[in-house]
Write a protein that binds this DNA or RNA. Structure first.
Length: 125
DNA sequence: CGGCTTTGACCGGCGC
DNA sequence: GCGCCGGTCAAAGCCG
């Protein structure tokens, strides 16, 4: 899967994470499911999510890894245009245990996104 | 009452 | 030129 046409499409970031136990990994942002399709190369269907925040065009797709039923492949497309994350805006970190996992996940995503973004910039130039 | 989720069908692009 | 796959949109229903 070549990715050298960054000047034409949005940046793409793929993260490999462990399933939350149900199949819905919350990364701290609000996502709206807009489609689900089965991939011929994977025994599991792929879910398509879009950011529900105003003015945000970030997209995300979730797919189950065939070699690891407990592993989810999250692919992020584009960058968030939100002022802040819903959790931070609510300051609900005081009464939500899953927030810790979310924060960690966010950090992981941010790290990966930054890394890929930097790479994309370097490749674009 | 509002918001979000789910399913089906359609369309476009690419490959052979 | 045809076929296949992936991706997106739209509408309806359900739940909180």
């Amino acid at each position: 899967m070549p990715e050298r046409k960054l000047g034409k499409i949005d940046n793409k970031y793929t993260l490999k994470i462990k399933s939350s136990g149900n199949g819905m990994a919350d990364d701290g942002y609000k996502w709206r499911k807009y489609g689900q399709k089965a991939i011929k190369n994977s025994p599991y269907p792929r879910s398509y999510y879009k950011c529900t925040n105003p003015g945000c065009s970030a997209k995300k797709q979730v797919e189950k890894w065939r070699d690891e039923p407990d592993t989810l492949i999250i692919t992020y497309q584009g960058l968030h245009l939100h002022p802040y994350s819903p959790f931070q805006d609510n300051n609900a970190a005081t009464k939500k245990p899953r927030n810790q996992a979310t924060k960690k996940l966010q950090h992981q995503i941010l790290s990966t996104v930054l890394s890929h973004y930097c790479q994309a910039l370097a490749l674009k130039k």
